[in-house]
Every structure is written in C-alpha cells, then in structure tokens.
Design a protein around this nucleic acid. Structure first.
Lengths: 246, 246
DNA sequence: CCAAAAGTGTTTAGGGTACACCCATGC
DNA sequence: GCATGGGTGTACCCTAAACACTTTTGG
C-alpha cells in the first residue's frame, strides 16, 4: 500500500548513539548526481529523513525511517522542532538531488524533526553499510547537506536539556555496568565533568539503580561493583526524578 | 503579492493574555455553514490560524495571524509542537468549513503551533470584535473546533515549563507595579500559590527589578511601593536567571 | 477604630560543592 | 611492588521552606 508523498512536508531524524566512549550521530550518504555542479559544495552526508506520505502519522514516519536503517527495534523518537524557512534548501545540488529522489518538483520543504538516543551495538551497526549509513562523532557532524548541521546542533541542545531535566533511559549501557560507566556516559553526553564522589552520592539515591554482587573481571586494577537497572522501579519513579543534574 | 496556500500545512497560534486577574486565551468564531450537519457538534470557536503560503516563513505566518487580530504590535511567538495526525480533523463540519475557507480539497492538515503570552490591554481588545475574536479564560477553553482543546492544553504546559525555567517578560504588567501584582501574576499563570515573604526575597534578587519612590494611590489600605523594570538589565541578565522557581 | 492589604526576620533542614587519600587487582 | 582506576567521608555554605505579627492607609 504505497502512498503518495506530500511534496512540502518531510520528517528528519537525528539519531544519537552512545558506544560507551563517544556520542555519535547517524548519517547517510546521498548519491552524487552527474548533473551536479562542482562549484556548489553541498554535503554528501545527511541525516536520515524523507517526505511524508499522505496518510501517515508523523511518529510512524520517523520510526520507519530509523527502522529501515537499524532494523526493527522500536525506538521512541521525540519531536523537537520544525525547520521551515522557504530557502532552507540553498544548494542547487541539494535541490537536484531532492527532485531526482522524489520525482516531484520541489520548491520548498518544511521538515519536522525527531530525535532519540540509543546504545550503539554491533548488531545494529552491521546493517548500516548496506544502506550507506554510518555513525559519526557528534563534533565531526559538520558540512552536512541542506541545513542538517543546524538541525543536529539544535537536536543536541534538546538532548542535553532533556537529560538534565529527567533521568536518561538506562538502555544505553550494558545490563551490568559500573558507576563509573554511568558517570562517563553523563559526561560524554552532557560534555561536562562531574566530581566522582558527588556523582556517586547523587546517583545512588535513584531507587531503580540496583547494586548487584557481581564484579568487573579482567581488568588490571581493582574491579568495580556492577550495578543494574530495575525497569519497573524506573517506570514508577522517573517522573519525580527531574532536575537531577544542574 | 498574494500567494498560493500549501494545502497540507497550517500555522496555529495560542495567544495567552493576562488581564491582571486571569489567564486567558484568544479564540475566534468560525462561521456556521448552511450545509453543516447538526448532529456533529463541532466547536464554533477555534484558535487563530490558517494555511501557510507557499513562500512564507513559519514565524511570519504566525506573526501575521496574530497581528491581523490585535494590530501591529510585534509579538515574539514561539514554536512549540506540531500536530499532524492524519485524522486530527474528525468532524465533518470542520472539514466542510475548511474547504469553504480555502477553496481547496482538504484531506489532511499538519499544523505547526506557536504560542506567546501578552498583556491584555483595552486598545488591544477593542480591535477584536471586528474579527469576531475574543479572550476566554484558560479553564473555559473547552469544546473548541478541530483538536484545538489539545493544542491549548499542550501550549499551556509549555508556557508553565518555560516560565519556571526562565524569567517572564515583564511587559505583562503596567509600567509601575507592586510586588504583590507580580506575585499574583506568577500565581495565576503557574496556577500555584507562593509564600509572600519568600516570594519577595527571591524576586528582589533580580537585578533588573527596580524599586521606585512612587506609591500606590486610591487604595483603602496601606499603599504599596511601586516597582519598575529595567529593560537593559533584563536583557543582560535573563540568561543566567533560569530555574528560578520550582 | 475598623477593615484590608502591605510589609517584615528568623529558624531549620537538606542539598550542593569542594576536597585527598587508601584499596584491590593484574602484571 | 607498581601502575591503574575503584572507592570512600567531612565540613561549609547556601537555599528552600515554614511560620505570625505589625504597619499604614481609607472610610
């Protein structure tokens, strides 16, 4: 049941990924067209997105865009901002590419943007190549096509604000993790350092953070205690846990 | 330079107004059409909005929608959410009305919503009647057309969140005002009571709140000191003044 | 003198921040 | 035994919150 596109409306997704060391963004390569004019340098990397179908829910569009790239995991994407300047698509090459993709005469596209943050896993990454998609570090996300630099920048601002206002989803770490893993996660995503002792004091108050009797292994230093995360308690308590960090 | 509408995209505005006692929302009456089917009760009040023109900036559309109703004051409207369910326009009467307005076959409209908060003045209100627009108290904004109940509800949530995260624009009060005026303003908008002494302590720390030597007059109780607001200091300090209230 | 709202200080408890050293393991 | 990161406690300050009475005006 393929539907017609709405030629003026697109959905774009900024998917952030954490690989236990860095914060990355998912981008896809767009084809370079023969007709392109070399003097217009327009990025060949873009964030995933496409025009909206006529009878499609916005959230469904966002999900399908991401699922096509990383498989069928359902990821809750959050709408954060619309980019709709009439001239947001400046480069002639970008326009050429859009028309070649959609077979529609494109004048102007208003794009509704979503974002999410997930854990980067090997399984996930293996499916990317076939779609010419890849993870790039957040601070290397420059020179993307269209106005995607700006979109990524804004999405990152939203992510940071959201993360300081409410606790993050814990599925960004392995099932068992150390408190220092958790601190590193916050530090990378918020781009901010925390005092180790104070961080532990705060984070241990979270009722859904469970201490296990497992230990790190195969490290050449004192092994750390492993913690895990109680989904049920998390769902129950996350509402009140806002404004946790400043 | 009239342009063509984009049939799938609209901009709607939730304009909140404070009249020194209540928080209100601006709504407009829509015509009842002869063809309407009485059995579908669809609201005859809606928030201001219209389809987007083909080459129009989103912000310009939002401004022009509001300026048409209340005159040429420039009000900074803030984009807050997109409502785009394919079936968000449920009532046949609403659809009829849309098509009669736009002369376009409307299937589905994705609407980008903006909001702002202003002071309700007499001058402002006098121009409303000719556009069949009016202010209604926020808690009476029920049974509006389309999904506008939901839009108003979400806008109000955003307003409250925004107001607790950063100081409000002071142009919601007369030039000279009492601290109790200010407290009443916060209490009405946030729908929350504050301790008078603690409120004063906090608010007096704001560097851009200036004590004058003027006094209230014509009140049959002890007259209050009047304060005013230093625009320049406000612009300079508002960034750091976040998270002021909880 | 009465009504009505303005204005004012103190105490307490909890949280944030800053800060330096010992511990357990692998090699 | 040494290198590496893991793990711990205290003191200070500041802020939030709770709380009740006196003051000044108009009528």
């Amino acid at each position: 049941m393929e539907q017609a596109y709405i030629p003026h409306l697109s959905v774009d997704c900024v998917l952030f990924g954490f690989d236990e060391k860095q914060l990355k963004v998912l981008v896809v390569e767009r084809d370079r067209l023969q007709e392109e004019d070399a003097k217009y340098h327009s990025g060949l990397l873009k964030i995933p997105g496409r025009l909206l179908f006529e009878e499609e829910y916005l959230e469904d569009a966002a999900s399908s865009i991401i699922e096509e790239l990383i498989g069928n995991e359902s990821i809750p994407l959050q709408q954060f901002q619309v980019f709709g300047n009439p001239n947001r698509i400046k480069s002639p090459n970008d326009l050429l590419w859009l028309e070649s993709q959609t077979k529609l005469p494109i004048k102007r596209v208003v794009t509704i943007c979503f974002y999410a943050l997930i854990k980067i896993t090997d399984a996930l990454t293996s499916t990317l190549n076939s779609h010419r998609a890849k993870w790039i570090p957040i601070n290397e996300a420059r020179g993307l096509a269209f106005d995607h630099d700006e979109i990524v920048r804004e999405a990152y601002q939203h992510l940071k604000k959201e993360l300081t206002a409410s606790p993050l989803e814990f599925n960004l770490l392995p099932t068992y993790f150390t408190l220092n893993n958790l601190q590193a996660l916050y530090e990378v995503i918020l781009d901010q350092q925390f005092d180790n002792r104070n961080f532990r004091k705060k984070i241990l108050k979270l009722p859904y953070l469970i201490e296990t009797n497992k230990m790190e292994t195969n490290v050449n230093h004192r092994p750390a205690k492993l913690y895990c995360f109680n989904e049920e308690l998390y769902q129950k308590n996350k509402r009140e846990m806002s404004l946790f960090f400043l």
